[in-house]
Design a protein around this nucleic acid. Structure first.
Lengths: 304, 304
DNA sequence: CCGATTCATGAGAAATTCTCATGACATTTC
DNA sequence: GAAATGTCATGAGAATTTCTCATGAATCGG
C-alpha cells in the first residue's frame, strides 16, 4: 500500500510558479503550459496547502507573488534552467557530440601515434574530451570491465564475453642495433643471438618482451631498463646494446641513420593490435576513433 | 482528455539517480527512498526509455553510471540541493525569521525615529531586511494595495476594506520660532499669526501642512521650501522665519536652545500616526515591528 | 449595471506510479 | 558444482495523483 506522504516540491509546481509570475494570470499560464486553467488552480491550491502559506496574492484579477512566491520563483528559475541545460547536454551526449573518451594502451605506444590522429578526431568531435589514462588498477581488461575505461589498445585480444575486440593494425617489432653491428649488414638476426647482447628496453614494455623471449628460451645477457625512447636509441647508437622497438616507433631514428633495424631471422616478430571495448552500447565517437585508427594505421605521414 | 506527452525530467528521476549512484544498487536506493525495489526498477526503465539511452551500466550486481548517468547525477545534486535550500528558506520565511519588510512613511518623518528602533528589531529578526522606500508611484495606500509595500506609517487612516490600520502614537506639531520671537515668551501662538510670517518648511511635508493651514483659512506671508531639517532650523535660528515640526523631530534643536517651540494657541496641533498594512496574512515580523513602534513611541531615549 | 474576464470548486475520468508476486541471472559459500 | 543468497526485470492490477469538464463567484471597465 502506498502511503500518502508530505511530498515535496515538484517540477510541476515550479513551472506553475514561473508561468504565473511571468504572465500574471492563471489563465495565461495555463495556456503556456498546455493545460486547463482549472488544472493550475488545483495545482496551486495543493502547493499552498503543502507549504501552509500563500504563494500568490489574489489582487483582483492579478496574481502577485508573496514573499514565499518570490523565493519559489528564484528556485524555479534555477532548477528549470538547470534542467534545460541538462536536456541539451544529454541530447549532445547521445548524439556523440559531447562526452569523454577514456583511453589507455597499457604501455607507452599510444604516445607515438595517437597525437597525430587527434586533430582529425577533434575536428569531428570538438566537444569530446580524450583522456589518456596511463596508470590503472590491475589490467587494462579489468579497467574496461569496471567501466573505468572506454577503449583499450592492446596487442592481445581478451577472451571475455563482456569485452569486444576488433583488429586495428599489424606491426613488426624490429631489433635495433648499432650500424656497425654484424646483423646490420645482412638485415636480419636470429633471436637466439640476443643471448649475447645487452637488451635495453623501455620500462613499460619490459614485462611483455621479457616473457615473450622467455617463451622462446632466450635470456639476454643483461637487461637495462630506461624510461625514455630517445635515451634507449642513444644507448644503442653508442654501441652499448640492442633494443626491441615497434617499426613505426623506430622510424624516426632509422631515418636519421644512427641505428639500424633488423628483423628476427626466423620470421618477423609481428604484433597484432586490437581495439578492446566494453560490450554494450558505447558513445558513437568511440567507434569513430577506432575507425580513424584503422583507416590511418601508424606511419609518420600526415593524416587527412 | 489528457494527452500522454514526452514529459521531461522529474524530481523523482533525479532522486533515483542520486540514490542509486550513491548506494550502488537499486535495492539500497529503494530502501533509502522508502519505496520498493520494483518501483525504482520501473522508474529507471521509464527514464531510460524517455532519454533513449542507458543511465546505468548493469555490471553484475552493481549499477555504474553511464556518461548520461553522470550528467544526470550532476543535475540531480544541483537541483536537489537547491530544493533543499528552498525548503529551508520557506520554513524560515513562514516562521518570520527570514524576509523583507518594505516600509514607507510617505514623508521624511521615519528617518528620525526609525533608526533608533532598528537595532532592537534586527536583534529579534536578524535575517529580515528592512527596506525604507522613499519614492513610490501614486499614494502610499495605492502602493499597499499593489503589494509593493508591507507597512505604511501615515497620519491619516485609509477608508478601504483592503487595508488594515492601527494607531501607533500621537504627536504634537510645534511651531518653531527664534528665541527672541514674542511668542517664545508666552509659549504659544495663535495660528492666525502665521499669516505675518515667512514659513520655512520641509519639501516632503509641504503639501500636508499647506492644505492643513488652508483649511483653517491661514496663508503665510511667504513659504520657503528646504530639503534638510538642519537647514530649516538654522534659518529659524537666524530669525528668517518660522517652521512647523513634530515635537520629537524638533527635540534635538530645542535642547540646544537655538530655537524655541510653541504650541498653537487655540489647541495643540495633534497628529495621530497609524500603521497601515494590506489586509490578509502578513509575515509576523510586520506585526512585531508595529508593536515595537507602539511600545516605543518616538523619543530621544534609548530603546530597550 | 452589464458583459467580459478571472479564479475557485466539485465530480468524475484518465493517467501515472506504486506494490505484489514472480522470474532470471550472477556471486558467494560450502 | 550445487545450494544459498542477493540483485535487477517484468507483468498485472491496485492506489493515487492529476487532469478535464461544467459551473459558480468575484472583479473590472465602459
Amino acid at each position: 500500500m502506498r502511503i500518502s506522504h508530505e511530498s515535496a516540491l515538484e517540477i510541476r509546481h515550479l513551472q506553475l510558479v514561473r508561468a504565473v509570475a511571468e504572465t500574471g494570470t492563471l489563465t495565461a499560464a495555463a495556456e503556456r503550459l498546455c493545460v486547463t486553467q482549472s488544472a493550475l488552480s488545483h495545482r496551486l491550491r495543493e502547493l499552498e496547502q503543502r507549504l501552509g502559506s500563500a504563494v500568490f496574492h489574489r489582487q483582483g484579477r492579478r496574481m502577485i507573488p508573496t514573499q514565499t512566491g518570490a523565493r519559489l520563483l528564484a528556485a524555479a528559475e534555477q532548477v528549470l534552467d538547470e534542467l534545460e541545460r541538462t536536456r541539451n547536454d544529454l541530447a549532445r551526449l547521445s548524439a556523440g557530440e559531447l562526452g569523454e573518451l577514456r583511453l589507455s594502451t597499457g604501455c607507452y605506444t599510444a604516445y607515438h601515434w595517437l597525437p597525430r590522429l587527434l586533430p582529425a578526431f577533434q575536428a569531428r568531435h570538438p566537444r569530446v574530451e580524450i583522456r589518456l589514462l596511463p596508470e590503472l588498477m590491475g589490467s587494462l581488461f579489468d579497467a574496461l570491465r569496471r567501466r573505468e575505461l572506454d577503449l583499450a589498445i592492446a596487442a592481445a585480444t581478451p577472451d571475455d564475453p563482456q569485452l569486444d575486440s576488433q583488429p586495428l593494425f599489424d606491426d613488426e617489432t624490429l631489433i635495433l642495433v648499432h650500424p656497425d653491428h654484424p646483423a646490420a649488414a645482412c638485415g636480419s638476426m636470429p633471436l637466439a643471438e640476443l643471448a649475447a647482447e645487452r637488451l635495453i628496453i623501455h620500462g613499460s614494455t619490459r614485462m611483455a618482451y621479457e616473457s615473450f623471449l622467455r617463451r622462446r628460451g632466450i635470456a639476454p645477457r643483461e637487461i637495462t631498463e630506461l624510461m625514455l625512447s630517445e635515451a634507449i636509441v642513444e644507448w644503442v647508437a653508442a654501441g652499448l646494446g640492442v633494443t626491441l622497438m615497434d617499426r613505426w616507433a623506430a622510424k624516426r631514428y632509422l631515418d636519421l641513420g644512427i641505428v639500424k633495424g633488423v628483423s628476427a631471422a626466423e620470421k618477423p616478430l609481428r604484433r597484432s593490435w586490437h581495439a578492446v571495448t566494453p560490450r554494450g552500447e558505447l558513445p558513437n565517437y568511440v567507434g569513430a576513433l577506432v575507425e580513424l585508427i584503422r583507416s590511418n594505421p601508424p606511419t609518420l605521414d600526415p593524416v587527412r
